[in-house]
Simulated scan of single mutants.
Amino acid sequence: MKLEKVRWGIIGCGNVTEVKSGPAFQKVKNSELVAVMRRNGELAKDYAERHNVPKWYDDADALIQDPEVDAVYIATPPGSHKEYTLKVAAAGKPVYVEKPMAIDFEECNDMIAACKAAGVPLYVAYYRRAQPRFLKIKELLNRKAIGDVRFVSSTQYQKTADEVKKGEELPWRLQPAMSGGGLFYDLASHTLDILDFLLGPIKDVHGIASNQAGYYQAEDIVTGTYRFDSGVHGVGNWCFAAFENVDVNEIVGSEGKITFSTFGDDPVVLTTAAGEQQWKFERPQHIQQPLVTMMVEELTGEDTKSPSTGENGARANWVLDKLGKH
């Protein structure tokens, strides 16, 4: 599939599209955002007016069938990702879907199959794969800056939001029917995917998921161990009812270690017998723009391939399912 210019439509123009993704479609070369959809038509109209988008819809099917829409970005909660992906694929248009890719691994496989049958690409919004800070870590690993990789540890925990403690209406991220699980599915998916990018696919998974605080039904703590195809071992701890916010990953090798966060802006740190080196990276204004650039370049026939596909997006869901169901 080769397009001269990619004219995008968005299904679900909520918060994630305001700064993280939406403006990127208008700023990337040979890319344009031409239509948005939200079930609340007034909110869709408001978004379109504020972002200078020519069309808005309150019906997803109408946007998908719009002949002026070449590709569709699905930015709804995961519970509707499969439904919309199958419809976009049936219309013969490329799909870019938010993460997690779906509510479970089985749905991911259905989405991959539909896009393959339709002959259209399927991309997933694991945008860290295109960001300079993680490409730097990849480069350090490739040149064996820490020798042979032995294991990776991830520790991510945070406080419970006050409104959740008060028993107010739960956000969709804490409703498994819409999200697949709790905050583990929403947040740990980024870490597990970037480890897949840096170290290769995970092969064996063992985990324990529980709800300790009792504020909602989804898991609020997950502890897991895993082994990558390469033989590297991994351990992860995620807790969403702790006393502070912590986000740290360590990749340990025979000659050193690399320390970094998944979500923070703190430096990437390389520690070896020779000492410590740090690299600081500015957060992109529109955090998905590097990945959007790569997708557009691929769709317009340039010698670029998106590093985030349905296949690796599904692998993240497979690990989430193994660790997070309780």
Rank of each mutant, 00 (worst) to 15 (best):
I221Y: 03
A118T: 03
W238R: 10
K257V: 08
K280G: 05
I208T: 15
D110V: 00
I146R: 13
G234P: 11
V292T: 10
E163I: 07
L170N: 11
D148C: 02
W279F: 09
R128G: 08
A274I: 12
D61W: 06
G200Y: 11
A118N: 04
F260Q: 00
G253R: 04
D229K: 11
I202T: 06
E139L: 08
N211F: 07
E250K: 11
A71E: 01
E18N: 07
M295W: 00
L199T: 14
V36N: 08
Y157S: 10
N52H: 15
K82A: 09
E244C: 12
H81K: 02
I194S: 15
W238S: 10
I103Q: 02
D162S: 10
T225Y: 08
E139A: 14
Q277H: 12
P284L: 08
I74A: 00
N142S: 14
Q175D: 04
A177W: 06
Q26V: 03
D110Y: 02
V124W: 08
D148F: 05
E32L: 05
D110M: 02
D162Q: 13
G224P: 05
K116D: 14
A35S: 15
K99F: 05
V88D: 02
E169D: 11
N30Y: 00
P94F: 01
T160L: 13
R315S: 11
R39H: 13
H233Q: 09
K138W: 10
T293D: 05
K93R: 09
D61K: 10
Q26C: 06
T225V: 09
K99C: 04
L140A: 12
L183Q: 07
F228P: 04
M295P: 01
T293P: 04
P132R: 02
D321V: 04
P54R: 01
K55F: 09
D59R: 12
A130G: 06
A62M: 09
C108E: 04
